[in-house]
Design a binder for these strands. Sequence first.
DNA 1: TTGTATGCGTTATCAA
DNA 2: TTGATAACGCATACAA
Lengths: 342, 342
Amino acid sequence: MTQLTTRRATIGDVAALAGVSKTTVSRYLAGNVDALAKETYHKIKVAIETLGYHPSRMASALKSGRSYLIGMIIADITNPYSTAILRGAEDECNRCGYSLMVCNTDNDPEKERQYIFTLQSHRIDGLIINTTGRNNDFLRQLNAEDTAVVLVDREIPDLSFDLVSVDNQGAVEEMVLFLLCRGYERIAYFTEPVEGVSTRTDRLYKFKSMLNQRKHASAADTYEVDLSKSTNLLPRLEQFLESAKGQHRAIIAGNSVMLLQISLALHTLGLQVPQDVALLGFDNPDWAPLVGPGITVIAQPTYEIGVTAMQRVLYRLQENQEETRHIRLPVELIVRGSTPKV
Amino acid sequence: MTQLTTRRATIGDVAALAGVSKTTVSRYLAGNVDALAKETYHKIKVAIETLGYHPSRMASALKSGRSYLIGMIIADITNPYSTAILRGAEDECNRCGYSLMVCNTDNDPEKERQYIFTLQSHRIDGLIINTTGRNNDFLRQLNAEDTAVVLVDREIPDLSFDLVSVDNQGAVEEMVLFLLCRGYERIAYFTEPVEGVSTRTDRLYKFKSMLNQRKHASAADTYEVDLSKSTNLLPRLEQFLESAKGQHRAIIAGNSVMLLQISLALHTLGLQVPQDVALLGFDNPDWAPLVGPGITVIAQPTYEIGVTAMQRVLYRLQENQEETRHIRLPVELIVRGSTPKV
DNA sequence: TTGTATGCGTTATCAA
DNA sequence: TTGATAACGCATACAA
């Protein structure tokens, strides 16, 4: 009669206590309230509260094919840029009754692949992915399934996924024009390795083409540095500063990780911003106003990117077969002390 | 005969193609390989690859009671401190074949409560929670269920959950002694509102008791500031600096958010660290070495906290009914230029 | 070493 | 407005 272990209440328990069928309870749960007698509605309500019943999404998902799970694969979760996107996506996700499974790949394609499998096994309804760019074949598979996939930040060639990002080439253009306008003669672009990462490729491409076009500096003023080895950056930095000695020099950092490392390296070298070299970066990290005279940056609407990407996923879930879209959100140049007129 | 829509393969499809029973495939999937004939093993392997089959965790969970889902509730995901813990937890989680559902409460107890329900509905096996501290009754419920719960950072009174954190009182003691030793006469402690947040309470308590004990400064040099209103901080800061005019002054920030805001405020006021006031903070954000002469901090082993908390959760899942433990990881004082000898 | 039968908790189909 | 019944994909007890 009395049960010793407190087993979790099921829809059957609720039905029994309320004196109705499981079907009726299921209708109640689905919010199909109009089709219920007032009295029935109330009996079920009471029964649910009495038992402290919570429906099992697993069972529901098994039957209905909807898990209410969205996967989010992030290349580097320690990057505040990613975290801000995550926060936007999470907010929107929760707002719509979905839950978010977060995966951090540390830019490792193998981990990314594993995560794609794992998420599939949980039957996620949708996926937001900030891809390492080296699993295109695996992502192609997802394309065939019914999973709604939206890319953030990084594009994949020849793949018909929605993409939410910013106008990277426009941003670089704005940066370079700004610096030229302020009188800088030599501008260096420092980026993490660009291979497979569309964002980095786009930015670097635009930088090169602008400088070549203006014949303003040698194209050699671009530096691809793998920051995983901490000793890689310093010599390249010195190389640039040496080669541009006596000129008005500026450095553009391709993302906030690079910006941080360059700031640290300049600090190490005993150099001052902007006296010794001007500095300009992507993203707008918390500390940008605090370092030296404040660092001029291109700020990206990270929170909105997250929200937009999630909206896009959920929209796709409404069985919309609309054509793939590439949504570009606007950036904003925030001028601080690191880039004065020369 | 031929199916038009590519339905997702099930264990039944694999069994049929391999010419064996579902049970046998299930054994294969469970890694129960010793009990399989070599030939059978191979047939199943081929069938799985041919079909691109991925087991459904939902179905598996429904039957076995194991969802392989761990929930993680974070009070503030934009705080790098939290992100670092998240990364540790996520790594360990993945390493053990579980997936992580991440929830960000923005320190809102109502959101926290909603998330607890949602996670329950997904039948999470375990939960790591950095609690707002104002849902103790709801968490008590979880205590009764079979969910493995581990708290990080923030404690809950009278609740028998495992807790992973640092020795906050010891850390404050180290900070204060360090500052006294260096000759500072007036030390202020700035914290976000402490109510319900054990970490903040502990730190503030220790600070007060040390200063009272030494009769070194008035206990009034503690400031609880709600940073959600951006205008709250500046007047309190000026109040302290004014009251301690002419003395060697130092400020301790109760966490890195506070440290950032104080740094910004001092910047606004045109004050220099450490000439005008010394600065000392909790956590070790990326930018700590870069601001002014570098900021002295107490660094917490955030990644390890995340890993340890997850290990603890997974350990509890092995049906261990061992007594509740409070694990305190060591902190490290990192001395930089913001706190010179006076 | 392998297979049959049953049930996990829910939703969907059909009937009343 | 409500209910009986089957099915979702898998794991397990038991049998062979």
